[in-house]
Design a protein around this nucleic acid. Structure first.
Lengths: 340, 340
DNA sequence: TTGAAAGCGGTACCAG
DNA sequence: CTGGTACCGCTTTCAA
């Protein structure tokens, strides 16, 4: 034993052991075909003996690329995100990129810093459901490029933007409930920071404007099942006969609390969610919702980022919208003759 | 405008603009107090003008640390993971570390390579629910250090190991059902790759050995709600009066399918889950399960990693076990007098 | 207090 | 086909 050096072997150690130049070691490690077989073998042997692993850091610095992209998400609780992530992940893997997920957390004021942090370690960034004001986002994006944004329904961000068409999704749901005879609805919102509440509310405003017999009251909700449970009593106080919920997760919570309160769904109250997560199917009663092609959205987001990665200056500002389709299940039914 | 240089400004650009050395710029950027206020200001101005952001890559290479750790998880669907992640994340943030989540995906044969990939970009790695054979894991860990393992109930891995005491959790559940008069149970497994099935099965074997009147049959399940739904019919075929399920998510799926099949829970069949996720509370009927201090587990895992980060050679091999406590809800009840 | 220069661990161009 | 060498962008002695 010469030395119990604790630090990992570097390319220099290998080149010394194999008695070749570092350049040659580099070639061998990267599978360059222009290396003599005998020498290559010698190098590989030395590398193995030293348990040599090229430093990604040094490699990235030299190459000018990391082969990694980050996805920033506010929170992992919403299963709809997983589907988007799977889409991104599969496409990225296909193109030889490694995906890293970064959780932004609740503090919106720290979000911009968080984006930068994540972006600094990668070649690109995908922002999923970014919160915070639009002008801040816009200026942040300048430093973040290449980046792509998911779920921000603005067409003029300085980055490719893909978004679920929340407005149309909610419109479909309202339409559905109206056809069932409902006139008085409630809307359970997302968390205060959720920007996707805006298009939803826009859909509500439009529906209200188009039909004077319609009434829709807003109840503040949140992002997880407990938020849904907590909204139950206030929903009941509105005396609405149908309720639209921010997303399926919250809706599942609402459903559970309604059951405890002895409210029969959909006989006394109809409930509709958003996203069509797996759980929507398992809820009791199974949840009427709208389905979105989240996986495809993820794939498409990757695609947009990929072109930016190749062509860093192709000032792409595409906007893609993903429609939601009604999935009618058992949590909605005809409006009760005599509202509670 | 001198040049429309597309590339980001480097420390050299700033030093040139401010007419100081790069060393000084570095000092200013890192808040060294030994810099003349006037000069420091000049540097800051130049940096701002150039929109200079130090390259994390170069910085990390020079410093020998990235300030980042990765957490590798097999899949994000299980909400229990989120709680663990929150624990890790909060603790890591507190110590000034950035957390990156890496999703291993279904292909277990790629898992080792995945670990290395993730580890290479960070200062440390936390493996949550690693699959694959123990000897492979053991040898992988040698290259991965510093790393810590979560949920592998082996005491002699070459890395700190923290694990939920699955064996005892299942034992509690069996005990609970026995007290309710159940003699014939079924166990719905996790996915074939899930190593935590082993201690669970061990608990079952012990219970069987200790009580000859007890019978427990195994049904293959999986990791998500649909796997639970699919297991329903086979569960019924066992004619068991009580069923233990791999985890709450699968149990929720099972519950939903049982309802569709007209089986009344717990009157005809008792169901118990594992983990006590939020959803367990919202299921119908609400799910009896065992609760684990997942958040604390996450915090503790970080702690272990943190000491390794400081003291790279403190060959820590601690093993910490986290007990599960019974949470009795509505999905379990007395064994039916006359089994179906 | 500031600057020059030597790394950190690789890659890649240019001779030979 | 191989080796020498100049970077990649930043930090950190060591002198001045």
């Amino acid at each position: 034993m010469t030395r119990a050096k604790k630090h990992r072997a570097t390319i220099g150690d290998v080149s010394a052991l194999a008695d070749v130049s570092r350049a040659t070691v580099s070639r061998v490690m990267n599978g360059s075909p222009t290396v003599d077989a005998v020498i290559a073998d010698r190098v590989r042997k030395a590398a193995a003996e030293l348990q040599y692993r090229p430093s990604n850091l040094a490699r990235s610095l030299s190459l000018g690329r990391t082969g990694t992209v980050a996805v920033s998400v506010p929170d992992l609780r919403n299963p709809m995100l997983h589907t988007v992530l799977q889409g991104i992940s599969a496409s990225a893997a296909h193109d030889g990129y490694h995906l890293l997920v970064s959780i932004a957390g609740d503090d919106v004021s720290q979000e911009e810093r968080h984006f930068l942090d994540a972006r600094q370690r990668c070649d690109g960034l995908i922002l999923v459901n970014p919160r915070g004001p639009e002008d801040e986002l816009r200026s942040a994006l300048l430093q973040l490029s290449p980046a792509v944004v998911i779920n921000r329904d603005t067409t003029d961000l300085p980055a490719p933007t893909l978004s679920v068409n929340h407005e149309r999704g909610i419109a479909l749901l309202i339409e559905h409930l109206k056809e069932l005879g409902h006139r008085h609805l409630a809307y359970v919102t997302g968390p205060p920071t959720a920007v996707s509440d805006l298009p939803r509310k826009r859909a509500i405003a439009r529906a209200l404007a188009a039909d004077s017999r319609l009434e829709i009251q807003t109840v503040s909700g949140g992002r997880d099942v407990f938020d849904g449970r907590e909204a139950a009593e206030e929903v009941l106080r509105t005396r609405a006969t149908g309720v639209l919920v921010f997303n399926d997760l919250v809706a599942v919570g609402l459903l559970s609390k309604l059951r405890e309160l002895g409210i029969s769904v959909p006989d006394q109250l109809s409930v509709a969610g958003f996203d069509d997560i797996d759980l929507a199917h398992c809820a009791y009663p199974s949840l009427t919702t709208v389905k979105v092609a989240h996986y495809e959205l993820g794939c498409r987001a990757w695609r947009e980022l990929a072109v930016l990665l190749e062509h860093p200056d192709s000032a792409s500002e595409a906007f893609h919208s993903f429609d939601a389709d009604l999935v009618r299940r058992c949590s909605t039914g005809p409006a009760p003759e005599i509202p509670r």
